[in-house]
Structures are given as structure tokens and as C-alpha cells.
Simulated assay, not measured.
Amino acid sequence: MQTILVTGATANIGRKVVDHLIAQGAANIRALTTDPRKAALPEGVEVVQGYLRRPETLPAAFAGVERMYLAPTPDTVDEVLTLARAAGIRHIVDLSGEPESWWGTVCKAVEGSGLEWTHLWPADFMENTLVWSRQIRETGAVREPRPEAATAPIAMDDIAAVAAVALLNDDHVGRAHALAGPQMLSRAELVRQLGAALGREIAFLESSREDTIAALTPAMGDTATWYVDNVLYGFDPEPGDLPLTSVPDITGRPATTFARWAADNAARFTA
């Protein structure tokens, strides 16, 4: 039976990929993690130690693997793929981005490796709204520059469900799946729905670039400036640009709405 390796298996998406593989009846699942003692993965999953940013730790984990979910590590992706090819891994399902994006270095490297591939190119994660949690706790408001800016955020669990399908089905070889959530929502509407989940109104305060960076820096550190300039100002998809039915089309199950995700994760904004 084929062995499927999930890298980043204790991280946000990789851990969910393991769960979805199990739910779909997969066996011979191997999970790569930096500390197997703390992995707390389900019984029956083979846990191995290794780290994608330290390629010298990977050969033993790659031995006997046929398919691999590849978490995005642009700085070492070429070395990782060289080892994967040498180990006989056949199919890579990578979390990446369009070729022109920063994450696109991953998908270009995977295609250049000569291995079979499936790319997953997700829209903004619903989980990214957690950067608001500190502002909400301390001020009851969210500060951003463009209340009308809209996208179709996707839950990490839905990305993982797509990854599991791609790992188990050769129909997805050679395909790049742009992934999005089921609804186009403005930033102000995201805040409104989050407030509904928390049972109280959260103010959306339209703020300057500088004030937004200052509001996000306690939560995001040095990445706040990049996030404001490249995500809040730099991403303006048209409704037709985002595949709102991608998750149900691939998985056969409804995609998670932001309202549902917010209700399930409300405690994370108050803790």
C-alpha cells in the first residue's frame, strides 16, 4: 500500500490534512514533525522527525513514500524536491500560490522537479482575521483602511479537505486548484459577522495606513507593514476572479461560511 507523507503535520493545515486522510479511509499515513513526542497525532499514524528547512533531516522520512503534501517553505524547496525525487516520491500536492506571487516560487520549483504535481492556491485564510483579536479585546474595534475591500476567505479545514482528495485521487495530477470560500465579503462585513458570533457589536474604524500598521504590529510584529501594503491595499479581486464553488466541486461537501467559522472560533477572539 502506498505511503502518504504529510509535512508540517502538526501545523495549522497539515494537522487537518491528516484528519481528512483518515476520514477518507487512507492508511499508511506518515506525519513529519519537528518533535514527535508532542505531536499528539491519531493512533495509527506513523510519526517521524524532520524539518523542511533542514533538508538533511528528511531522507529517512521520505523513504518508501509515494505521495506527499508539501507545506510551503520557499527557502529550501529545491533541496527538498531533490531529496523527494531521489527517494522515489511520485506525486506532490503543494500549498503555494500563482507563479507571479511570492509563494509561486514553490509551485514553479515543484513543476521543475519532474515529479507529478497538484497545486493548491488558496485565497485569504479565514484564520487571518485572528490578527484582530487583540484590538477587539482591548478596544472593541478593528482598524483598517478599506472597509469596502472584498475577498472570499477560505477556512484552513477546507484547504486540508481538498489536499486529502488530491493526495488520494490521480484525477488531480497536473492541475492547479485556485481555492476560495463560498462568499465575497467586504472587510466591514467580516467584522459585522464576527461581532454577531461574539454577541456584541464590533466597530470598524476606517484608519490610515500608518494607524493600521500601528494597530496590527502588537499582533503581527514586523510583518504588519507587509500585510497592510500587500494584502489590505494590494489585493482587489473581482467577483468573477474567485472560484466560489471550488471546495464543493472538489470535495463534494459544502464549503465553510465565515459566519460558521466565526461561531466555531469565537472563543479565540476573547481569550
Rank of each mutant, 00 (worst) to 15 (best):
94 D>T: 11
96 S>R: 01
97 G>R: 07
97 G>A: 15
99 P>S: 08
99 P>L: 08
101 S>I: 01
101 S>V: 00
103 W>Y: 07
103 W>D: 00
104 G>I: 08
104 G>C: 06
104 G>Q: 09
105 T>Q: 12
105 T>S: 11
105 T>D: 08
106 V>T: 08
106 V>C: 00
107 C>L: 00
108 K>Y: 03
111 E>M: 11
111 E>H: 12
112 G>V: 12
112 G>Q: 10
113 S>M: 08
114 G>I: 05
114 G>H: 05
114 G>T: 09
116 E>F: 10
116 E>V: 04
117 W>I: 04
117 W>A: 09
117 W>N: 07
119 H>A: 15
119 H>C: 09
120 L>V: 03
120 L>Q: 02
120 L>C: 01
120 L>E: 01
121 W>Y: 14
121 W>D: 06
122 P>L: 02
123 A>M: 11
124 D>S: 14
124 D>L: 15
124 D>A: 15
124 D>K: 13
125 F>L: 12
127 E>D: 11
127 E>M: 13
128 N>M: 14
128 N>H: 14
129 T>N: 12
129 T>V: 15
129 T>G: 03
129 T>F: 15
130 L>M: 15
130 L>F: 14
131 V>P: 00
132 W>G: 00
132 W>C: 01
132 W>I: 04
133 S>N: 04
133 S>P: 00
134 R>I: 07
134 R>E: 13
135 Q>W: 04
135 Q>H: 03
135 Q>S: 04
135 Q>G: 01
136 I>L: 07
137 R>T: 05
137 R>Q: 13
138 E>R: 13
139 T>P: 00
140 G>H: 13
144 E>N: 11
144 E>I: 05
145 P>T: 10
146 R>E: 03
147 P>C: 09
147 P>D: 08
147 P>G: 02
148 E>A: 15
148 E>D: 14
148 E>N: 10
149 A>V: 07
149 A>N: 12
150 A>E: 01
151 T>W: 11
152 A>M: 04
152 A>C: 10
153 P>A: 05
154 I>P: 03
155 A>E: 02
156 M>E: 07
156 M>P: 01
157 D>W: 06
157 D>C: 12
157 D>T: 11
157 D>P: 09
158 D>R: 10
158 D>N: 09
163 A>E: 04
163 A>I: 11
163 A>Y: 09
164 A>L: 04
164 A>H: 04
165 V>H: 01
165 V>L: 07
166 A>D: 02
168 L>V: 09
168 L>I: 06
169 N>W: 03
170 D>P: 02
171 D>N: 13
171 D>G: 13
171 D>M: 12
